[in-house]
């Protein structure tokens, strides 16, 4: 692999890892505070799956890059501007509707993305994606089912869920927009082209929203951008301050 493609692969792995780490972290905040006991367990399962996927992607990134940083060094010792997650996943949890809508948008994307990445000739990358795909498929089933129950439940649940969809919509563009990183990897045969992904994602999301008796904001809404290059919302800094505090307070320690 030529150095520039390798650099693109590392960048891609950080995007994959950081998305799942930050989203898994957000979901873990629900532990002990869920609306019903069974859902506390369910959200925690999703958090565990995502953090597990993140750990694998970050580990691979560290292996491929020259400095050989471990997944922990990457997770706990980078600054916010060095993270490559989409802004969607760093948004605070809000109410259960906000969390489920955020999950719904992400899970629809995650299962499609991993479905493509598992075709990679890079054996390790394909392996992580394949394992993650089984999990992501289940996550999407769960979040879609909840979108439907909340959208088509009570007047209050519909109101909250529609508000969540409206508020989160501007973050979704970043998820299904791919730039030079993914293009270079596709041109060099590391991953398939992701050109069709946005369309498939929109189909899935539209179907789920319709079944939930909700609506999507009109076409042409402005989408946030920049976080794939490190330009995040203010939320990420606070999240990382909490996540990294113990590790950074004892920088030479083993845990």
């Amino acid at each position: 692999m030529d150095p520039s493609t390798q650099k693109a692969l590392i960048d891609f792995l950080l995007r994959l890892g950081d998305d799942r780490l930050i989203l898994g972290h957000r979901l873990s905040e629900w532990c002990g505070h869920g609306p019903v006991l069974e859902e506390d367990i369910a959200l925690t399962n999703i958090a565990l799956d995502l953090i597990g996927q993140a750990s694998a992607f970050l580990h691979l990134a560290g292996e491929i890059e020259g400095h050989r940083r471990s997944e922990d060094e990457l997770a706990y010792f980078r600054e916010a501007t060095q993270f490559r997650n989409a802004q969607l996943v760093e948004q605070p949890n809000g109410d259960f509707a906000f969390t489920i809508a955020r999950q719904f948008f992400f899970d629809a994307y995650n299962s499609l993305l991993l479905g493509e990445v598992q075709k990679s000739p890079h054996r390790q990358l394909a392996g992580i994606a394949a394992k993650g795909l089984a999990e992501a498929t289940y996550h999407f089933r769960h979040s879609r089912d909840w979108m439907i129950r909340l959208g088509d439940g009570t007047d209050e649940s519909r109101r909250r869920t529609q508000a969540a969809v409206n508020d989160l919509w501007r973050f979704t563009g970043e998820l299904v927009t791919f730039d030079g990183t993914e293009q270079q990897l596709a041109e060099n045969g590391i991953i398939p082209s992701l050109d069709q992904l946005r369309m498939h994602w929109l189909d899935r999301v539209s179907e789920g929203i319709r079944s939930a008796t909700l609506s999507l904001p009109a076409n042409g809404a402005t989408m946030v951008s920049g976080s794939r290059r490190g330009n995040h919302s203010e939320h990420l800094g606070h999240l990382l301050a909490e996540m990294q505090i113990v590790a950074r307070s004892y920088p030479d320690a083993q845990w």
Partner: peptide, 20 residues
């Protein structure tokens, strides 16, 4: 046992609680 409002959620809850 699990609690759930409908069968589909009961299946998912059962999977999350008893099939880990």
């Amino acid at each position: 046992s699990v609690h759930a409002a409908d069968a589909e959620m009961a299946l998912q809850n059962a999977r999350d609680v008893y099939a880990r």
